[in-house]
């Protein structure tokens, strides 16, 4: 019995006999890690030699007059323009559905009720985000409203709302 095992026994703790790591590391990780760390250190050192001054010009009174220009716009704007009548914004649903359609994850069959949670779950957050940005959806409005841009939450809400929609209802949203 080695020292570690004796210590555990003294503590009256039973652990598996082998303490070998079960996780894997990428191939060549330990060969590369020294170089990666050195590169990071060099990059930090190099960045310290760079200037921070921004050379671009701006109108001389720009910041002095900026507040006035914004306030003139908000005076005429409604206090709240984002209203959520549904748990899921139509754009999010439309984006998700259009994405599913575009990558051909399922096909419609008559007017049967659709179960698409599992299909949607296969779409990564980055793909969904990319799709929405590519299609100019007002992604920021969701961020503002929810205070987070958690697309998993969008997906969860989508699951709740989209389950059981008919083909016609889905097409109405998606178009």
């Amino acid at each position: 019995m080695n020292e570690i095992q004796q210590e555990l026994e003294a503590l009256n703790v039973s652990l598996p006999a082998s303490n070998k790591a079960v996780q894997e590391v990428p191939n060549g990780y330990f060969d590369r890690v020294n170089e990666d760390v050195l590169n990071m250190i060099k990059a930090e050192a190099f960045s310290e030699t760079l200037p921070k001054k921004m050379p671009q010009s701006i109108p001389s009174d720009y910041f002095d007059t900026f507040n006035k220009k914004v306030l003139a716009q908000v005076e005429t704007a409604p206090e709240m323009i984002v209203h959520r009548t549904s748990k899921l914004k139509p754009w999010a649903l439309a984006a998700s559905i259009a994405l599913i359609l575009s990558i051909g994850l399922f096909t419609f069959q008559g007017t049967e009720q659709l179960s698409i949670s599992s299909e949607l779950a296969q779409i990564s957050e980055s793909d969904l985000k990319e799709y929405m940005l590519d299609n100019d959806y007002e992604f920021n409005d969701y961020i503002i409203e929810g205070q987070t841009a958690n697309l998993h939450q969008v997906e969860e809400e989508f699951f709740e709302e989209a389950e059981g929609l008919s083909k016609d209802e889905i097409l109405e949203y998606a178009l």
Binding site: Q56, Q73, V74, A77, E79, I144, E145
Partner: peptide, 29 residues
């Protein structure tokens, strides 16, 4: 975005969106 006019438009949009939504801001960040 480099250009001043584009930057100005975006900056104004940021504060207008803030105006419209600050009352609902939950302060998670």
């Amino acid at each position: 975005v480099v250009d001043h006019e584009d930057s100005n438009d975006i900056l104004q949009t940021v504060f207008i969106k803030a105006w419209k939504n600050l009352a609902k801001f939950r302060g998670e960040s």
